[in-house]
Design a protein around this nucleic acid. Sequence first.
DNA 1: CGCCGCACTTAACATTTGTTGGGTTTGCCT
DNA 2: AGGCAAACCCAACAAATGTTAAGTGCGGCG
Lengths: 259, 259
Amino acid sequence: MLFGRHALSRVGESSAVTSDMIWAPLFQRLKTTTGADDRDLEALAALPFTLRTFRENQAVLRDGEQPSECCLIADGFCFRSKTIVDGRRQILSIHIPGDLPNLQNLHFPTVDHDLIALSDCTLAFIAHKALNDLISQRSGVGDMFWRDTLVDAAVSREWIVNVGQRSTHNRLAHLIVELRERLRLIGRVIDNTFEIPLTQEQFGEAMGVTSVHTNRILRELRIDGVLELQRGTVRILNEHKLQELAQFDGRYLQMSPSS
Amino acid sequence: MLFGRHALSRVGESSAVTSDMIWAPLFQRLKTTTGADDRDLEALAALPFTLRTFRENQAVLRDGEQPSECCLIADGFCFRSKTIVDGRRQILSIHIPGDLPNLQNLHFPTVDHDLIALSDCTLAFIAHKALNDLISQRSGVGDMFWRDTLVDAAVSREWIVNVGQRSTHNRLAHLIVELRERLRLIGRVIDNTFEIPLTQEQFGEAMGVTSVHTNRILRELRIDGVLELQRGTVRILNEHKLQELAQFDGRYLQMSPSS
DNA sequence: CGCCGCACTTAACATTTGTTGGGTTTGCCT
DNA sequence: AGGCAAACCCAACAAATGTTAAGTGCGGCG
């Protein structure tokens, strides 16, 4: 079920893209997270969708747009961001395969932030109408989606804590551990290495600091033997030290159905 | 429909508390926000509830609890917060009459943060079972609640931007303008004066700065003739300067049904 | 192959924010 | 009225973070 990071996004790729490949990460996450009903998932997988590919840095959705579809990340990474008047930009969340980053548009027509491709990526677009029809037939699907937006909200709250209270070292460690746990859920963590294709500037925008300062932090973490970051690939050098810095309590991710 | 800030919370108060008084702020907000169906609201108002009062600083919900009820703020203010291991605390959101701060527990049993009374306040508790029964009968109620949690999420995202990117002066101005707009919606803003019963330390915890620095900012805003804050009462002195600082774009609050 | 742009890197300096410690005011309680 | 605790206020100094202004290295493209 694992496929390469850009497997789906090569321009001109002619291999058949099956529905399975599109939905697998989401289903894997939903099963682990909230205990999904198989028939709800089957109904989802039967929905028609349109595939579109985006290049690194290309906008998927712009602040103010009124999309008529929801998108599912099939491959690659995206991020939400808001830019304030003086040009500073805050990254609000990172999205990975299996995420539905604009489910909220099922209820509110206008997006209030940008959604931008972090790497070349492939998204499946599903019409609001099709989703709403399915939800009205199978209330379990609506509940599942509601839960998904609630986890999204919980991630945002933890993001506030990160930016507001943690030291920048702890902040970077926490961000990385959160991403790793989410990537692990969809099978993207091998050994101590995984991909987070953010530039140092983007890490800074996620943490609310400048790229220069991000660079300072990374150097210190490297010198202290905690982790290395090279062109978007994270390598954990000392798991214990990382945990100590991250102070990570993953309950907010709702990764076990019992919680 | 307006009643004093502590009208419902005086210990020993014997006047009858009608369902209307409890639901009025929420209904006022929902009508302005998302266009609510009157019959859905009537059905809500018919639900049984239990009133409980809390003293300033008392915990309504603790991180890790598994409540069997959702609460509606009938009177007074509450806030969500998370405390990290070194004792620092981040305020995640401020809640005012008409807010349903733990709707998410309809779907997830465990709360992942604290909910604390900011002032003496009165909350109406409604059993999950009663809410879920109503939702399964009237899907409009479920949709309304889903929308409410989505607005809550949008407020959290803007909070991230505030803490992450804005200068502390702008940050305080933005926080105050957001609260004012939400208070205005439920009729709590008179002239240029309204209540935000936060101490300077709590303003700091909301913005991710220390109380000493909050005090610095407030002094400068006072000297610059922007606003005054005295014992939880905000007085706007210069609306134009305030707007300039706050850079407030309220679309994320979804205050008009058309947006 | 060589050039070019972008990410990364670093240092010196400026500015913001935190820390400490003390004082003042306010409101409540007795 | 007097005393107490909490909030507010402020200044001096320390630490964290931003700004500016340079490099360096790498990968893509002509």
